Amino acid sequence: MNADPATQLRLLDLQAADTALSQLAHRRRTLPEIARIAEKATAADAVHTEVIDAQTAVADIELEQTRLENDVETVRARTARDDARLQAGGLPSRELEGLQHEIATLARRQSNLEDELLDVMERAEAAQASLADASSRHDALVAEQRALEGERDAAFADIDAAAAQRSPERAAIAGELPADLVALYEKARAQSGNGAALLRQRRCEGCRIELSGSDLAAVGKAEPDAVVRCDNCRAILVRTAESGL
């Protein structure tokens, strides 16, 4: 394939545009905020599990507390009824003795229930504190994640704006060049990432390898309009006065 040396030189502008676009795409994929967002999301998920567990513990304790409170009220009501009967008097001695025994039993039962209730209330306080702590940590992680997402989105916007500026420029350059030359360039770029590279002082600027021996001789003998390629990276070698041939 042949192409005017000036046209071949224009391939370097096309390569520069493609390199810039590739760098922008790589930067978009590898923004540090992306990894940090993932870390925060993982941590937030783990703490969210703690929140759910703490909520479950609080709910269970509240149910237990409600049951004990109801039991205490039931015992108090029964005691009040027995006290009223006792105060009313007129009971046979055997029934009076049984009523007094029941009142004493109810008193012990109420005391035990109130001790249990106190213990449950202490556990409820601790469970609520654990829930508040887990919720606070979860909210903080989510807030940090949202802030990082804002930073990521701002960086995305800058990158996308730069790419939007470069893409028409790249298209304009490609549109100036012969279709067969662009096709060869694209084929070479697909192979190694470099479609075209400057030959400077016998070194391919694409793969950074110096030409020698028969490769150098073949390039040196090629006509100025001949399209030559690097045997190592297959990029189109663009020759200038700096090529050292």
Rank of each mutant, 00 (worst) to 15 (best):
E144A: 15
R203T: 14
G175R: 01
Q128E: 15
L141T: 02
D153I: 00
N112V: 13
H138F: 06
A163V: 03
D180M: 13
A164V: 00
N194I: 13
A174H: 00
L148M: 03
R202W: 02
V120Q: 06
E144S: 13
A147T: 10
Q201W: 11
R166L: 13
E114Y: 05
A155E: 12
P168K: 04
A143Y: 08
D115E: 13
A162L: 10
D115R: 11
A104W: 04
E102D: 10
S111F: 08
R137N: 09
L184I: 07
E205C: 10
R109T: 15
H138G: 02
L118K: 06
Y185K: 11
D158R: 13
A161E: 09
K187G: 10
G150Q: 05
G150C: 00
E116N: 14
R203F: 01
N194H: 14
E102R: 13
S135Y: 04
R189A: 12
D119M: 07
G98M: 10
A124M: 13
Q110G: 06
E125W: 05
L198E: 04
D119C: 04
S111L: 08
R123I: 07
L131N: 02
E205S: 07
E125D: 12
Q100D: 02
S111E: 14
G150T: 08
C204D: 04
N194C: 11
T105K: 12
L99K: 01
R200C: 05
A155W: 10
A172Y: 08
L118M: 12
S130A: 15
R170Q: 09
L141Y: 09
D139N: 13
K187W: 13
V142R: 14
A127N: 07
G98Y: 03
S136Y: 00
R137E: 15
A127S: 15
A132I: 05
E176V: 07
E122G: 05
R166Y: 10
D160Y: 03
A143N: 01
A157F: 02
Q100C: 07
D158L: 15
E144P: 10
Q165A: 09
Q191N: 09
A129V: 09
L181C: 07
Q128C: 06
A134V: 09
P178N: 05
A172E: 11
Q100R: 12
A171I: 05
P178A: 02
C204L: 05
A190F: 01
R166K: 12
E114C: 01
L117W: 03
A196W: 06
A171T: 08
L141I: 06
E186G: 08
A127T: 04
Q145A: 11
A183R: 15
R108C: 00
C204V: 06
I103L: 15
R166Q: 07
A140R: 08
A124W: 05
Q110P: 01
A172P: 00
L181R: 00
R108M: 04
R170H: 08
A197K: 02
E186F: 03
A157R: 11
N112E: 14
S130G: 15
S130K: 00
E205Q: 10
E97F: 11
A127I: 02
A183Y: 08
I159L: 14
H101N: 12
R202E: 03
R137I: 06
R200S: 09
R109E: 12
A147N: 01
A127C: 11
A124C: 09
Q145P: 01
A161Q: 05
A143G: 01
D139L: 01
K187C: 03
V120C: 06
E151P: 08
L106T: 02
